[in-house]
Simulated scan of single mutants.
Amino acid sequence: MPSNIMIVEQPDRALEPQFVQRGEQAVSRFFLGEEGERARRFQDWIGNHSANTVRTYRTQWSNYFAWCEFAGVDPVPASPYQVRAWIDFRKGQTNPVTGKPIAPNTISQGLAALKALHEIEGLQYTNDYPEIKNALGAIRRKSDHVQRQARGLQLEHAYAIRAVAEDARRRARRKRATAADHRRADRALVDVAIVFLARDCLLRRSETAALRWSDFEEQSDGSGRILIRKSKTDQEGKGQVRFVSRATVEALKRIRPKGADPEASIFGLSSSTIGARVKRACERGGLGEAFSGHSCRRGMAQDLAAKSFNTAEIADAGGWASEGMVVLYTRHEEAGRGAVARFHEGLGPSER
C-alpha cells in the first residue's frame, strides 16, 4: 500500500441525500455495469452471505463509493491513508433516524465492508494498519456511545406472553365470543409458538421464518427436534439439529393445521414480521417496549448463563461463530456470579 499521507476536502454534509444516491449508483456500476468476472464474483459473494449482511454492506459501500468519487480516488485498492480519510468523513456524519453522530460500531462495520470489497476483488487488505486503528480508537475514546441491545426475553417473560394467550383462548370460548375474539386467540397462540421455539433453539428471525413443518420432529418422550437448514454462520447449508422442549412441542401442535403440507412454512411470516410480532406480544404481556425479534435468542442465552452454562456451550447452542456476542449478551449474568458477587455471598448477614 502507498505510504503518502492523504488530505482531501470533505463533501458538504448538506448534500448527503444526493451523496448517498450517487453512491448507490456507483456501487451498481462497479459490480453490475458489465457482464464478466467481477459480476460473477459479486453474485458468488451474495450467495454465501445472509440478506441482512448484503444489505448492510451495500449501504456502507454506497457511502464509501460516493466519498471516493468526491475525493477523486479509486475505491480499490485502498491505502490506509485513504481509509483514514473516509473514517474522518464518517465520524462527522449523523444517523438519519436518531440525528445523533454515527456510532463507532457503525464505522467498524464500514471497515468490515471494505475488507469484504477487497476480498471480492481478490485483493489483499487489512484494517490492522496503525493509521486505521488509531483513527478508530480515537473515535471510541471520544464517544460516550454504549451499544444498546434489545432486552432479553427470558423464561418469566415467555410465561407472561403465554398467560395472555390463555386469557385470549378463554375469551374465545365464551358463548358471546366474536370473530375478533377468535382471531385474537389464534394470533396469540402463534405468538406463543414463535416465542417458545425461538427461545428453545436460540433462533435468529431469519431462521424462524425459514422453518418448515418437515423440519420439526416430535420425539417419543414428548420433546422435539428442529432442523436449522441454513443460518448466518452456516451459509453452506450443512444444517444443525436443536432441542425443542415439551412445552414448545405442545405450542406447535396447537397451531399446526390438520393435514399440513410438510414443506409449508410453520409460521408463514417474513423475518421482519416475526420481529414485529415478538415486540407486540411483549407489549401485550405488559413487558414494555424494549424487546425485538432478537430478544428470544438473547433471553435464552441469559437464562443459560444464569444456570452456569459457559460461553462456549451457549455459543454452540445458538450457532454463534464466536463467543464474543455471547459475552455481550450475558454480561449482567456473569457479573452476578463474578468475584465481587461471590465475595458478598460469603459475608455474614451483619457484614453485608
Score class of each variant (00 low, 15 high):
255 I>C: 09
264 A>V: 01
278 V>H: 03
243 F>N: 12
312 A>C: 10
133 K>G: 05
231 S>N: 06
342 R>F: 07
167 D>P: 01
169 R>C: 01
280 R>N: 08
6 M>T: 12
222 G>N: 02
338 G>Q: 10
27 V>P: 14
96 P>Q: 10
97 V>T: 10
224 G>T: 02
31 F>Y: 15
292 S>T: 06
89 F>V: 10
55 R>K: 13
244 V>A: 07
92 G>P: 10
347 L>F: 14
92 G>K: 12
97 V>A: 11
197 L>P: 00
135 A>N: 02
215 D>S: 03
116 A>D: 03
242 R>H: 01
49 H>C: 06
17 P>T: 06
324 G>A: 09
222 G>A: 03
60 Q>R: 11
78 A>E: 04
82 Q>R: 10
302 Q>Y: 02
1 M>C: 14
232 K>M: 09
46 I>D: 07
51 A>S: 08
21 Q>H: 13
325 M>L: 01
90 R>P: 11
81 Y>H: 15
147 Q>N: 08
35 E>N: 14
96 P>S: 11
124 Q>A: 13
105 N>H: 05
188 A>E: 02
35 E>H: 13
228 I>D: 00
112 A>T: 04
209 A>R: 03
255 I>S: 06
241 V>Q: 08
343 F>V: 14
297 R>N: 01
307 K>W: 09
200 D>T: 02
84 R>S: 13
273 T>F: 04
131 E>M: 06
151 R>D: 03
269 L>T: 03
327 V>R: 09
296 C>W: 00
321 A>Y: 04
179 A>D: 13
219 Q>M: 03
345 E>W: 15
254 R>D: 09
51 A>K: 10
239 G>Q: 07
101 P>G: 04
243 F>M: 13
340 V>L: 13
4 N>C: 11
50 S>E: 13
217 E>D: 09
204 R>M: 03
48 N>T: 11
193 A>W: 00
